[in-house]
Every structure is written in structure tokens, then in C-alpha cells.
Simulated scan of single mutants.
Amino acid sequence: MTAHVGHDARDASWGTAVTATLHCLTGCAIGEVLGMVLATALGLTDLSSIVLSVVLAFVFGYSLTMLPVLRDGVPLRRAVGVALAADTVSIAVMELVDNGFVLAVPGALDSTLADALFWGSLVLSLVVAFVVTVPVNRALIARGRGHAVVHAHHGH
């Protein structure tokens, strides 16, 4: 999913899948952490907190893919399509897993920014989501999807 990794689009190795998932994790983590921090600080409901975090994870995830594609001269409309094709499944899996994990941790959504439970459950949820999403990305790459879509726009 990153535009600047030097792998062939058909390279469905574990290393490529890990790199693609780290890229996805970066966008998801920024959105997830920002969303949870904002929601907690604003006293939003659990559902609002999760919705805000998921929306921001997609926004940041897509943005991290689109920026290098746009720098390579791809028009905005096409860059949006590339980001959607490259990242939607990966971000969706990551968000399902990390939010499911946080929901399963008793008290995590009720904790405050000063609680170790807030930060610990959030970090651990992202680690678990990463581990689950790596094989998903590997399968996508092997089929010319996900991370491979970005490479098609960079002459890799």
C-alpha cells in the first residue's frame, strides 16, 4: 500500500505484506488514536467514539496512499480511485479487529486519557489488528490487489 516501496506489484512475499500493512497501520493508528482521544476528551458515547475513530482511520489511511500518488502526477480523481482500491479492504479489516478488541476489553471505552487501560488497550488493539491484517494484505497482493494497485501507478 505504500507508493515508495521497491517491490514488484506481483511480489506477494511476507516482507511486502508486512510493509504494506505497516503503511496501513500508520494511517489507521493516526485516525484511531486521534478519534479516541477526541471522543474521550469530548465525552462522546461509545458508538460515537468508534464511528469517529473509524472515519478518521479511513481518511488518514487513504490520504497516506494518495499523497505520493498525487506527487507522481496522477490526477486527483484517479488518485482517489487508487487509494480506494488499494486500502479499503486492509483498513476495514484493521478497523474491525482493533475496534472489536477495544470493545472486548472491559472498561476500555470508559477509561480516560490518564488511564493506562485507555492507552494499553488502544496499542494492543493495533498490534492485534496488524497481525490479523498481514495475511489479508499478502493475499490481496498475490491477486494484484491492495498494495499492488499503488505499484501499478508508479512504474514498479
Rank of each mutant, 00 (worst) to 15 (best):
D11K: 04
L25R: 04
G6S: 10
V82G: 02
L52R: 03
A114I: 06
A57V: 01
S49D: 05
F60H: 03
D11L: 05
S53W: 02
H154G: 13
T2W: 14
G120R: 13
P135H: 09
D98T: 08
A114C: 06
V69L: 03
V89F: 00
A79R: 02
A139K: 12
H156I: 04
L140A: 03
R77E: 08
S121W: 07
T65N: 12
P68S: 05
L47K: 08
L44N: 00
T40W: 07
S121I: 02
V134G: 07
C28F: 02
R10M: 09
L84Q: 09
V127Y: 10
L70C: 06
E95M: 04
V134C: 09
V74C: 09
M66H: 05
P68Q: 04
V102E: 12
V150N: 02
G120I: 11
L34I: 15
D115S: 15
P75T: 03
V80K: 06
V132L: 12
R78G: 05
I30E: 05
L42R: 06
V5F: 13
R10L: 11
A20P: 02
V74A: 08
H7R: 15
L25I: 08
D98H: 13
V136L: 02
V54K: 01
A83E: 02
C28Y: 00
D46Y: 12
P106F: 12
F118E: 02
A29L: 10
W14Y: 11
I30Q: 06
V136E: 00
M66R: 04
A104S: 15
A129Q: 01
V102Q: 13
D87S: 14
G107N: 02
W14V: 14
A92K: 01
G81S: 11
F58L: 06
G35Y: 04
G155S: 12
L103N: 07
V69D: 03
E95R: 00
M94E: 04
R145K: 14
V93K: 00
R78Q: 15
I50Q: 01
G61N: 01
T133M: 10
F58N: 00
V80Y: 04
S63Y: 15
V55R: 08
F130I: 04
S49T: 12
M36Y: 13
V134P: 03
T21A: 08
L84I: 15
G6H: 13
R145E: 13
G73P: 10
H153F: 11
L25D: 03
G144N: 07
F118W: 12
V134T: 04
R145Y: 08
S63P: 03
M36V: 10
A39C: 11
L140T: 00
P135W: 05
L126Y: 11
T88H: 01
L76S: 09
V5A: 15
T40H: 05
V55E: 07
H151Y: 04
S53M: 10
